[in-house]
């Protein structure tokens, strides 16, 4: 992409994406990491993100959507500021993952793929996140919390609420 072209992304991300496209023998190999980084910065894959990524790689928007819709980690609607992914796969299930998941639902008043009204939290039930040894586990954005019990849920949420208040004003 030529430097004078408008971009949605921060200069840092734009530079990172520019480097990524050069990295593989075939440009489209860069598609998935590009989408992931773009989602991290923008929050979700908006139409504008899809169109810019397509243009950077030189494929159609349809191509981008074909790939992006396959992966449940890529989303097309904004998530909460903190996206809580609760594992209920086999190890976690055996060690009480469903109870933890239910407690999150009660505390937040939302279900699978829901977003709280203030936009601070979103909740997802996910498959194994690779933390089976410390099951049950959850992932909040890129942070892990493990060996959980339902009683610990409120404390975790309070911690993030505090962060949200301290660093970002309420919507």
């Amino acid at each position: 992409m030529s430097p004078e072209t408008m971009t949605l992304f921060s200069p840092r991300l734009a530079a990172r994406l520019d480097a990524l496209v050069q990295k593989y023998p075939v440009k489209r190999s860069a598609l998935i990491p590009m989408l992931l980084y773009a989602q991290d910065e923008v929050g979700y894959l908006s139409d504008a993100v899809i169109s810019e990524v397509a243009e950077r790689i030189g494929i159609t928007e349809l191509d981008v959507r074909n790939v992006a819709t396959y992966y449940s980690m890529l989303r097309f609607k904004p998530a909460g500021k903190f996206n809580i992914q609760v594992c209920t796969n086999i190890s976690c299930m055996l060690r009480g993952g469903y109870e933890v998941y239910e407690r999150f639902q009660e505390e937040l008043g939302i279900g699978h793929k829901g977003v709280t009204a203030d936009g601070v939290f979103s909740l997802e039930e996910v498959e194994c996140i690779g933390a089976c040894c410390w099951a049950p586990a959850i992932q909040v954005n890129y942070d892990f919390h493990d060996e959980l019990k339902p009683e610990l849920v409120r404390g975790i949420l309070d911690g993030y609420r505090f962060q949200a208040e301290g660093k970002a004003p309420h919507a």
């Binding site: 159609t60 819709t69 396959y70």
Partner: peptide, 18 residues
């Protein structure tokens, strides 16, 4: 023309127009 693609996964897969 490349106007068609497949989206989503598994039983949710659909053919999608451009």
């Amino acid at each position: 023309v490349w106007a068609l693609g497949v989206q989503n996964r598994g039983v949710n897969s659909v053919i999608a127009p451009n």
